[in-house]
Amino acid sequence: MVNRRGFLALTGAVAAAGIAGCGPSGGGPLVRLASGEVGGFYHAFAGLLSAVAAKSGNVRIERVTTSGSQENLTMLATGQVDAALALSDSVGDTTDRMLALGRVYENYLQLVVRSDSPITRVADLRGARVNLGADGSGAALTGDRLLRVAGMDPEEDVVISHRPLRDAVAALNSGASDALLWAGGVPTTVLEVPSRMRLVDMGEWAVPMRERFGPVYDRVEIPADAYPGGSAVHTIGVANLMLAAASMSQDTAASIVELLVYQADSLVPTEAAGTQFLDGRSLIGTAPVPLHPGAIEIYRRWHG
């Protein structure tokens, strides 16, 4: 794993929410890539990947705006898109329908409350109004698991809502909700940390999550300088996988992986100040999803 601190500015206008995303240009086969919400890491990363693909001329990537991991996996399985970004814990038993292109970044689970909130730990969420990410997002699945591991029944002990990120932030600021859970990169600029919000430490739950649900969860640190002026907290990290339909040609998969390996410096959104895996030694760690043969070809070439 490689730690990157430099922030690269995103270029181009951010696409409006909806299916239409960053339009492809140039030559090569067209790949529709399911990304995530506007303002989140997936959406930003897919936009950067589309831009470098257009320069390469070997493949065209169209960014598709979605709610996140679970919706992305459904779209990939049903042939609505050709590739998708997803949290590794969302993949489940769907691995027979897809192959991996690489493990790209670490997502940070972020429990956010207002700065003056009495909530200081996960156990304090009992009886609270909590947004567990948009329907179809990875946070919705991971958040449900977190509450259960912490001894709560999400259907009885917590008032759950599922709003997109920007709506969840507005609800938190207005007092309509008490906390939101977001799975994304750091910093996520729409989160007003530390001016109006703060992060709740969840490091103690990484090991119990790992013991109950498997090795997809890691204990990671969000450093104080991730949100300038904020405090360092520990939380739960989940790897992001870039996945492809099993039917994707070997040449197309190879063209995409060449971008991941050889254009890594152009693929670091501002939301990825923390750990990232855009290195040939780390990209290959896609378990439980096997690598696409086209990806294997490029990784072998990279390793020599």
Rank of each mutant, 00 (worst) to 15 (best):
A226G: 13
S161F: 08
L241G: 04
D157F: 06
R166V: 14
G151K: 01
R210P: 06
T188G: 02
G214K: 01
R148C: 00
E192H: 12
M197H: 14
M209L: 15
I222M: 04
S177R: 06
P194L: 06
S174H: 04
E155N: 11
T235M: 06
P215V: 04
L181D: 01
G203H: 05
E204V: 08
D153H: 08
R212E: 15
V159K: 13
W205Q: 11
G203L: 08
T189S: 10
E211Y: 06
A226E: 05
L147F: 11
S195K: 12
P164G: 07
A206Y: 02
M152R: 01
P223H: 10
P194G: 09
G203D: 08
V159Y: 11
A245H: 04
V159P: 00
V207A: 15
A183R: 03
R219Q: 10
L141K: 15
P215D: 10
P228H: 06
T188L: 05
P208L: 09
V169R: 10
A245L: 01
S177C: 15
G230V: 03
R148Y: 02
S195P: 09
R219L: 11
D225A: 05
G151M: 07
A239V: 07
V158Y: 01
A170T: 11
M242F: 10
D218E: 15
S231F: 05
E221N: 07
V220N: 05
D218W: 02
Y227V: 00
V190W: 01
R198E: 05
V190P: 06
L180T: 07
D225F: 12
N240P: 02
M152N: 08
R145Y: 07
P187H: 09
L243A: 10
D144S: 14
G237T: 01
D218I: 03
W205H: 13
E192I: 10
D251T: 10
G151L: 04
V149D: 03
